[in-house]
Amino acid sequence: MAVRVTAGAPSTPASRSRADASRGLLAGELARVRAQAENWRNGLAALLGLLTAVGIVKGPDTLQGLSGGARGAVGLLLLGGLLLAAGGAFFAMRAAFGLPRRRVADASLEELLTRERLTVRRAVRDLRRAIAAGFLALAVVTAGIGLTWYGPRPGEPGVQIVLTDGSALCGTLVGMDAKGLRIRVKEVERRVPSGRVGSAKSVPSCP
């Protein structure tokens, strides 16, 4: 590819004003993009802080009773959300503040200008990545929290009683007194005299 330069049309006051304005356009560009990135960084941090607060309030006890598959899915979703949030935070901060590194000094003004353009372009790209990662983290963590609330729970916790004849009953303990205990098995209340009770223990769910 070649570049050809010829004399242009005569200058006008309007074209001169535009040329004056364009001189300042490049100068403040990186600062403007970095200021935007810093504001987005603060917004995304607040958003993810809200998620953290929700997660703490609900706590790990909400995983109780969830099926094994659901627990695994919740774990993966929360881990994925955390990694996305960390990645988004890194991109936002790199867009806002840059990342100093050792490099060969620019030998000419052209190289310096090129590097400045590339820096601005990289900052814009990082900002977009940060926003995408931030909202994706929000979606993933929301899905994980939703699964803990509405995920499949195979059975309700209950009491398993082994009788002296070897048979077993599993259900919800309704009440107990000196004569025996009452247990609800599949919606039917049954009474078991104390003398027939061999052992009893609580179970996470009845079959």
Binding site: L25, L26, L109
Partner: peptide, 26 residues
């Protein structure tokens, strides 16, 4: 990037003309 002598005062000058700007990236 345009560089070269000013046709009036003959001193070296450089001008950068933006083709793409990122004034409001989003």
């Amino acid at each position: 990037v345009v560089s070269g002598p000013c046709p009036r005062c003959h001193h070296e000058t450089v001008h950068a003309e933006p083709l793409i700007t990122y004034a409001n990236a989003l």
